[in-house]
Amino acid sequence: MSLPIMGVPDKKRKKLTVYTIEECINCKKPTKREFKDGDLVHKILDKCKDCDNNIMISLIYGEEIKKN
C-alpha cells in the first residue's frame, strides 16, 4: 500500500538517442549520425568531399525518439 506522496517526480523518463553533427568548416554542410565512442565536440575528422576542407564535429546532443 502506498500513499499519494507530494511532488512525485515524473516517472516517465525520456529515452534519448545521442547524435553527432559533423560540419565542414568551409561549406558548413551538416551531416547527422549516431554517436560513436571517441566523438568529441570540435574534433577534426576527415576532409570534405566537396571542398577538401576539414570536417569538424560541431555538436553532440541527445534527442528524444519519436514514436510513429
Binding site: 534519448l16 545521442v18 555538436l59 553532440i60 546532443y61 541527445g62 534527442e63
Partner: peptide
C-alpha cells in the same frame, strides 16, 4: 548532468 539535449546545444 546528463547528455546535452538538442535545445541546449542549439543555443550556441
Amino acid at each position: 548532468i546528463s547528455v546535452m539535449t538538442k535545445e541546449i546545444a542549439e543555443s550556441v
